[in-house]
Computed example of a mutant assay.
Amino acid sequence: MSTFNHPDFGAEKFSRAPDARFVPAPADGVLPEDFFSTTNLPTYVKVKGKWVMPREPRMDSALVLDHDGVLWIREGRRLKKGDLVAVGQDEDGSTGIYVHVSAFLGESAEGEFKFMTSEVSREKPIDYALMARILVEERERGGYPVWVAGPALVHSRARNDMAWFIENGFVGAMLAGNAVAVHDIEASIFRTTLGMTATGEATSGGHGLHMRAINKVRAAGSIANAVEQGIITDGIMYSLVKHGVPFVLTGSIRDDGPLPDVITDALAAQDAMRAHTLKATMAILIATALHAIATGNMLPAFVTEKDGSLRELAT
C-alpha cells in the first residue's frame, strides 16, 4: 500500500503560520461556533509552535486539546463544557491546521478534502486479488483487519468461506448487525437461512426458524454459551468464539430478538465498534451499506506505524 512522508514543516508557509486557535466548548456535547470538522486524512495542528498530529483520528469530529497539552480527535457528544476545541475552516495550514490532502489522493484543484472523491473512499469497489494479497501481508505483519459484514454474506452461502478466514488468522475483529449472527446460527442449527435450504428451497415452517434459533441462544444466555453447549456447531459465530476473535453486534429498529450479545444502545454500539477501528490496519466491508459507512466514518485513511511513518489503510 502507499506510504508517504510527513510535510516539510521547515518550509516558510508552515514556519510562519500561527498556532491553531482553541475555544472552550460552551456546554456539554456542544461545539463552539466555527469548530474545525475533521477529515479521515492526515491532519497536523500547530500547538505552541510545533506541528503535531492528533490521536485517534477519524472524520466528522473535532480537534480537542486536553489539560496535558495532548491533542485528540473527539466526537462532539463526548465534549464537556470548557474543553478546548480548535476553530477555523482553513485546511492549508494558514490558521494552524493542515490537512495533507495530497498524501494519498493527489492534489485537488481546490486543495481541500472532499468526501467520496478519494481512492480510499469506503464506498468504492475494490480489486479482490489485491485485497487477498494485502490480507496475507496484514497477517504476516501482525496487523488488525476489521471485517464489516451484512446478512447477504450468509444468504449467499458464504458462511463457510468466512469461517475459513477467521480460522486462518485473517480476521482481527468482526463488526456486524443482529441479522448476520441470527442467520448464521439458524444455518448452523437448522441448515436454513430465512427458512431456505442451501439450494434455495422453502421449508415447512421455515419462516420461523430464525426465531427458534434466537430463542435457543437466548435460553443459553449468550452466543459463546451456545457454542460451548453444542447448540452452535459451525459457521461464522462458532469460529469467532472458538478462535477468540472479538465481535461487535449492533442493533437496529427492525431486529428480531435480538440475540443477547447485540448492543441495542446506538451510542454504546458505536463506542464498541470504535474500540476496534482504533486498532484497524485494514477494513473489509461486505454486503452492508449502513455498517460500512458507519465504520468508514470511524476510520482514518492511514495507519500510523510504530516508527511514526504513515501508510494507507486499505479498505
Rank of each mutant, 00 (worst) to 15 (best):
F4E: 12
D8K: 12
F9C: 00
F14E: 03
D19G: 02
A20F: 05
A20H: 10
R21W: 08
P26V: 01
L31E: 15
T38A: 08
N40H: 12
L41Q: 14
L41E: 15
K46T: 06
M53I: 00
E56A: 15
H67N: 06
V70T: 15
L71F: 08
I73L: 11
K81P: 09
G82V: 06
D83R: 00
V87A: 11
G88V: 00
G93P: 00
S94Q: 10
T95M: 15
L105T: 15
G106E: 09
S108N: 14
G111P: 01
E119S: 06
I126H: 09
D127Q: 06
A129T: 14
M131E: 02
G142C: 02
G142P: 03
V146S: 02
A149I: 06
G150N: 05
V154P: 08
S156F: 10
N160Y: 09
I166Y: 02
I166C: 00
G172R: 00
A173L: 07
A176M: 14
N178P: 01
H183D: 05
A187D: 09
F190K: 06
R191C: 05
T193I: 03
T193L: 03
M196Q: 04
T197Y: 11
G200H: 09
E201H: 13
E201A: 08
S204Q: 12
G206M: 04
L209W: 06
L209R: 07
N215V: 03
K216R: 11
A219R: 13
A219W: 10
I223C: 08
N225L: 07
T233L: 10
D234T: 02
G235T: 02
S239L: 07
L240Y: 01
H243Y: 14
G244T: 03
V248W: 06
D256T: 02
P258Y: 14
L259A: 10
I263Q: 05
Q270A: 15
D271K: 14
A275I: 13
I284G: 15
A287K: 07
L290Q: 14
A292K: 05
A294L: 13
T295N: 07
N297A: 04
N297R: 07
N297M: 05
M298N: 14
P300G: 00
A301K: 15
F302N: 01
V303A: 07
D307P: 04
L310D: 02
E312C: 10
E312H: 12
L313Y: 00
L313S: 00
